[in-house]
Nucleic acid binder design. Structure first.
Lengths: 278, 278
DNA sequence: GATTTTTTTGGACGACCGGTATAATATAAA
DNA sequence: TTTATATTATACCGGTCGTCCAAAAAAATC
C-alpha cells in the first residue's frame, strides 16, 4: 500500500483513539496528515470505509500476534489460551476498540454495522473452537454456551473496571474467568445443561459466506456509486451488472466483459476480480 | 409535568426506538409531535437532555415494575429474582436501550456518558445486593464478582442472540445463567477465590454523592447558560453563584437570596431547591 | 371585557458536518 | 518534452444541532 495512504490511516487511527470516531472530523484528519480533501476521498470512499480499513489492519496484526503465541505449543495448554485471549483484549484496550465500536453502531452505516457484528461472531467462534481444544471434546455440545459465558464475564469485568477507572491486570481477569469456567464446565458436562446448539454459529453463516457477502456488498455499492454519474448507456449496463451480481451464480465472464465496456472501470474491475477470487 | 411536554417525549421515544438516536433529527421530532422548534428548545436544553429525560422515565418505570414483582415475596426466592432481572432485560429490549446507549456514547456529551455509566453501576449494585439475599451472606465477599459475571453472561448471550437474529425466551437465558451461578457460587465459596473487593462499588461512589454531583452539574450548567444572555450586573451575581455552588459546603440562604435578585430565575430557583433538597 | 404576562410559533441564521466537483498545479512516466 | 496521473485548494450541496427574535396566540390577572 501507498506509504502516504498508510500515513493517513495512522493519523486517523491516532485521532480516533484519542477523540473517538464521531468527534474526529475529516477535516481533523486532513490537517493531521497534511493532505487535501481531494486526496482523502481518492484514498478512501468514505470516513467509515477508512475506519473499516483500520479495523482490518488492527485485527490482522492481533491475529498474527495470537498465532505467534501458540507457535509450537500444545493446543490444550491453558496458559497459552489465556495469553491468546490477553492479546486480543490488550489490542482492544490499546486501540480503544470498545469506544470505536460504539461509534460504529451509531453511524447508521449498515455496512459498518455488519462488519462489526461479523467480527464479534468470528471472535466467538475462535473461542468456541479453542475451548474444545483446551477442555477436550466432551465440552463440544456446550462449547457455544461456554464461549459466550466466558466472553461475557471477561468483557463485563473489563468494562466495569474501565468505568470505575480502576487498573487491574488483564491477565488476572482472564485467569479468574478461566477458573470459573473450570467449575462451570464440570457442572455443565454433569448436568448436560445446554442453552444454545453448539453448531448454531456454523449453520448461521459460514465464514466464507460472510466474506463473500461483504465482497458482493462492496461491489454493489461501487455500482451504485457509478450510477450516479453515468450516462444512459452506462447506466443500463450498470443495472445489468447489478442484477447479475445478485444472481445465485453470477457469470464471471459475462460480468467482466460488460464491466470492461464501462468508462472509469478500474476500481470496478478490481472489485469484480476480488468478488470471484474467493 | 406538562401534558404537551410528555407528548413530545413520547413521540421522540418512539422515533428513537424506531430509527435510533442519531438518525432521528430534531426536525423529525418536531413534525411527529407537532410543536415548533422554539417550544422544543424551551422544553429541553438539547437533544441529548431529552434522551436523558426519556432514560430516567424508562428506568423509573422499570424500577417500579421490579418492586411490584417482589412485593410480599421472600427475598431469597430465586424465581422472584429471575423475574426481576427479566423485567429489566425486557425493558431494555422493548426500548432498544442497548442501541440507544450506543448513541449516547458517541455523542461526546460528558454529562450523558456519566449518566449511562452511573446507571450501569447502579444496576450492578442492585444485582450484587440481590445475589447476597438469594444465596445468603456467605457469598458476600464474592458478591461483586458474581454480579459482574452473571450480568456478563446474560448480556453477552442476549447480544449474541440479537446479532444472529434468533429469538429465545429471555427467561430461559436468565435461568441458564442462574444455574451456572449455582455452580460458580459453590466453587467460589469453597476455593475462596476473589477478584474484586465486594465493597469496591460502595467505596467508589456512594449513590447519594452521585445524585448530588448530577444536581450540581445541572445547576452549574444552568448558570452557564444564563451567563450567555446576562447583563453586567447579573453576570457578576451569576459568577458568584458559580463559585459558591462549587464550595465544599455551599450556603443555601446566600445562594437563594442572590438567585432571587437575578432576572429570569424561575428554573434557577427550582434547580437550587433541588440541589439542597437531597 | 380589557390588560398584562406567558407560551408558542416559525423561520432566519451560524457554525459545523460528510461528501462532490472542478480547475489549476505538481509529479512521474513515456 | 510531452503525456498521464496524482494532488491541491476551494466552492458547493444538503444536512445536522442549536440560537435568536418578532409576531401571534393563549392564559392569567385585573
Amino acid at each position: 500500500m501507498n506509504e502516504r495512504k498508510k500515513n493517513v490511516m495512522k493519523a486517523a487511527h491516532a485521532l480516533f483513539v484519542e477523540k473517538g470516531y464521531t468527534a474526529t472530523s475529516v477535516q481533523d484528519i486532513l490537517e493531521k496528515s497534511g493532505i487535501s480533501k481531494g486526496t482523502f476521498y481518492n484514498y478512501f470512499p468514505s470516513k467509515s470505509e477508512l475506519l473499516i480499513s483500520i479495523f482490518e489492519k488492527i485485527n490482522l496484526e492481533a491475529d498474527e500476534r495470537r498465532t505467534e503465541v501458540i507457535a509450537g505449543r500444545p493446543v490444550h495448554d491453558k496458559e497459552v489460551f489465556i495469553r491468546q485471549v490477553k492479546v486480543k483484549m490488550e489490542v482492544n484496550k490499546e486501540n480503544n476498540l470498545f469506544a470505536l465500536f460504539q461509534g460504529v453502531f451509531i453511524s447508521e452505516d449498515e455496512e459498518l454495522k455488519k462488519f462489526v457484528k461479523r467480527h464479534h461472531l468470528k471472535e466467538l467462534r475462535w473461542m468456541q473452537r479453542r475451548l474444545v481444544e483446551v477442555y477436550g471434546s466432551r465440552v463440544r455440545p456446550y462449547s457455544l454456551d461456554t464461549a459466550i459465558s466466558m466472553f461475557g464475564i471477561i468483557q463485563n469485568t473489563l468494562h466495569f473496571l474501565a468505568a470505575i477507572e480502576e487498573d487491574v491486570e488483564v491477565d488476572s481477569v482472564i485467569a479468574y474467568a478461566m477458573r470459573r469456567m473450570d467449575a462451570v464446565v464440570e457442572d455443565i458436562v454433569k448436568t448436560k445443561d445446554v442453552l444454545l446448539d453448539s453448531r448454531l454459529l456454523e449453520r448461521w453463516q459460514p465464514e466464507e459466506l460472510l466474506i463473500k457477502e461483504r465482497k458482493k456488498s462492496r461491489l454493489l455499492q461501487k455500482i451504485g456509486a457509478m450510477q450516479q454519474s453515468a450516462d444512459e448507456q452506462a447506466d443500463e449496463l450498470l443495472r445489468f451488472l447489478q442484477d447479475e451480481a445478485r444472481e445465485e451464480t453470477p457469470r464471471r465472464l459475462v460480468i467482466e466483459t460488460v464491466a470492461k465496456c464501462i468508462p472509469g472501470n478500474e476500481d470496478l474491475l478490481t472489485l469484480i476480480d476480488d468478488f470471484f477470487k474467493g
